[in-house]
Measured scan of single mutants.
Amino acid sequence: MLEGKVKWFNSEKGFGFIEVEGQDDVFVHFSAIQGEGFKTLEEGQAVSFEIVEGNRGPQAANVTKEA
């Protein structure tokens, strides 16, 4: 699992990017966010995740919000 911070997330469109120190930003789709209820992320929020190869390159999977 990697750790990063949410760079930005558009809850209307359901996607955004996660910043990872020393690496390129990683695309995140709302469907990759773990948990119940409305799936969104806040700018600057700490998250842990895995990287998988998507249709358009690397993207986040199994995203969990850090306490």
Rank of each mutant, 00 (worst) to 15 (best):
18 I>A: 02
9 F>E: 01
44 G>M: 06
29 H>K: 03
26 V>F: 06
28 V>K: 00
49 F>K: 00
64 T>P: 02
8 W>I: 04
35 G>W: 07
43 E>S: 15
50 E>H: 09
18 I>N: 00
52 V>D: 06
24 D>M: 13
15 F>W: 14
43 E>P: 15
9 F>V: 04
51 I>R: 07
63 V>D: 01
12 E>T: 14
1 M>I: 13
5 K>G: 02
24 D>L: 12
24 D>A: 13
8 W>P: 00
49 F>R: 00
5 K>F: 06
33 I>G: 02
57 G>V: 04
9 F>R: 02
46 A>S: 14
51 I>W: 06
66 E>Y: 15
27 F>K: 02
59 Q>L: 07
58 P>L: 11
41 L>G: 02
50 E>F: 12
50 E>G: 08
66 E>K: 15
60 A>N: 01
57 G>D: 03
27 F>T: 02
21 E>I: 15
50 E>M: 10
53 E>G: 10
33 I>S: 02
39 K>P: 09
4 G>I: 01
47 V>C: 04
26 V>K: 03
67 A>Q: 11
22 G>F: 10
25 D>H: 06
27 F>L: 04
49 F>H: 01
21 E>L: 13
35 G>M: 15
33 I>N: 01
52 V>W: 09
28 V>F: 13
15 F>R: 03
15 F>Q: 04
49 F>D: 00
20 V>K: 07
23 Q>S: 12
63 V>R: 01
60 A>Y: 01
11 S>K: 14
36 E>F: 07
29 H>C: 04
53 E>C: 05
50 E>V: 08
1 M>T: 13
17 F>M: 07
55 N>K: 12
55 N>L: 15
16 G>I: 01
59 Q>A: 10
56 R>F: 15
9 F>N: 00
50 E>A: 10
33 I>M: 05
3 E>C: 05
52 V>A: 09
45 Q>C: 04
12 E>Q: 15
21 E>N: 15
18 I>L: 10
65 K>T: 10
55 N>P: 14
63 V>M: 03
6 V>R: 00
25 D>V: 06
17 F>Q: 03
28 V>M: 04
5 K>E: 05
29 H>Q: 03
34 Q>K: 14
27 F>C: 02
2 L>E: 06
64 T>F: 12
56 R>N: 10
36 E>Q: 09
38 F>K: 09
36 E>R: 08
50 E>C: 04
37 G>Q: 07
65 K>Y: 14
67 A>K: 14
27 F>Y: 08
64 T>H: 14
61 A>S: 11
30 F>W: 14
33 I>F: 05
66 E>P: 13
9 F>W: 13
35 G>S: 09
22 G>I: 04
57 G>P: 05
11 S>N: 12
37 G>A: 08
30 F>L: 06
42 E>W: 12
43 E>V: 13
16 G>H: 00
44 G>D: 06
46 A>N: 13
4 G>P: 01
38 F>W: 13
14 G>P: 00
55 N>F: 13
24 D>V: 13
15 F>T: 03
24 D>T: 10
25 D>T: 06
12 E>L: 13
35 G>K: 06
17 F>H: 04
33 I>K: 01
57 G>Q: 05
43 E>N: 13
64 T>D: 07
17 F>W: 07
44 G>T: 05
62 N>F: 10
26 V>L: 09
56 R>S: 12
7 K>S: 04
45 Q>I: 09
36 E>A: 11
66 E>N: 15
29 H>M: 05
27 F>M: 03
39 K>H: 07
40 T>N: 09
57 G>K: 06
47 V>P: 00
42 E>D: 12
9 F>A: 02
45 Q>R: 07
28 V>R: 00
57 G>R: 09
2 L>R: 06
22 G>C: 05
11 S>F: 12
7 K>D: 02
27 F>R: 02
22 G>T: 06
22 G>M: 07
18 I>Y: 00
7 K>T: 04
39 K>Y: 06
47 V>T: 03
43 E>R: 15
26 V>W: 03
6 V>N: 01
64 T>W: 14
63 V>T: 03
14 G>I: 01
52 V>Q: 11
60 A>P: 01
12 E>D: 13
2 L>I: 15
4 G>F: 01
50 E>Y: 13
16 G>T: 00
54 G>S: 12
40 T>M: 09
11 S>G: 14
45 Q>M: 12
26 V>A: 03
10 N>Q: 08
7 K>Q: 03
58 P>Q: 08
6 V>E: 00
10 N>I: 07
44 G>C: 04
40 T>I: 10
19 E>G: 11
17 F>L: 07
9 F>T: 03
46 A>F: 13
14 G>M: 03
7 K>R: 12
66 E>R: 15
40 T>D: 07
55 N>D: 14
25 D>F: 04
67 A>D: 08
38 F>V: 08
20 V>D: 02
56 R>K: 13
48 S>C: 05
21 E>W: 14
37 G>T: 06
31 S>T: 15
6 V>K: 00
59 Q>M: 11
34 Q>F: 11
31 S>F: 06
54 G>R: 08
38 F>E: 08
28 V>D: 00
40 T>L: 08
53 E>P: 13
41 L>W: 02
61 A>W: 10
33 I>Q: 02
52 V>G: 07
26 V>P: 01
48 S>H: 15
57 G>H: 05
39 K>C: 05
8 W>E: 02
5 K>Q: 05
2 L>C: 04
29 H>D: 03
3 E>S: 15
43 E>L: 14
4 G>D: 00
13 K>P: 02
12 E>R: 15
58 P>T: 11
53 E>T: 14
67 A>F: 12
49 F>E: 00
63 V>P: 01
25 D>W: 05
62 N>W: 10
38 F>C: 06
16 G>E: 00
8 W>A: 03
54 G>N: 08
45 Q>L: 09
26 V>N: 01
46 A>E: 08
51 I>V: 13
27 F>I: 03
40 T>G: 08
34 Q>P: 06
48 S>V: 13
57 G>A: 06
41 L>I: 07
37 G>N: 07
54 G>P: 03
49 F>W: 02
49 F>I: 04
36 E>P: 10
44 G>R: 08
10 N>D: 12
32 A>T: 06
59 Q>H: 10
37 G>I: 05
11 S>W: 11
21 E>Y: 11
16 G>Q: 00
35 G>H: 10
34 Q>Y: 09
4 G>T: 01
31 S>Q: 07
14 G>L: 02
22 G>K: 08
56 R>T: 09
9 F>M: 03
9 F>I: 03
16 G>S: 00
23 Q>P: 05
15 F>M: 10
63 V>I: 07
65 K>W: 10
37 G>K: 07
44 G>H: 09
45 Q>P: 01
67 A>V: 12
6 V>Q: 01
26 V>Y: 05
9 F>K: 02
21 E>H: 15
13 K>C: 05
57 G>M: 05
64 T>R: 15
62 N>V: 07
9 F>D: 00
25 D>C: 05
53 E>A: 10
50 E>W: 10
54 G>V: 07
53 E>Q: 13
10 N>F: 07
65 K>L: 14
27 F>A: 02
47 V>L: 06
59 Q>E: 11
19 E>K: 14
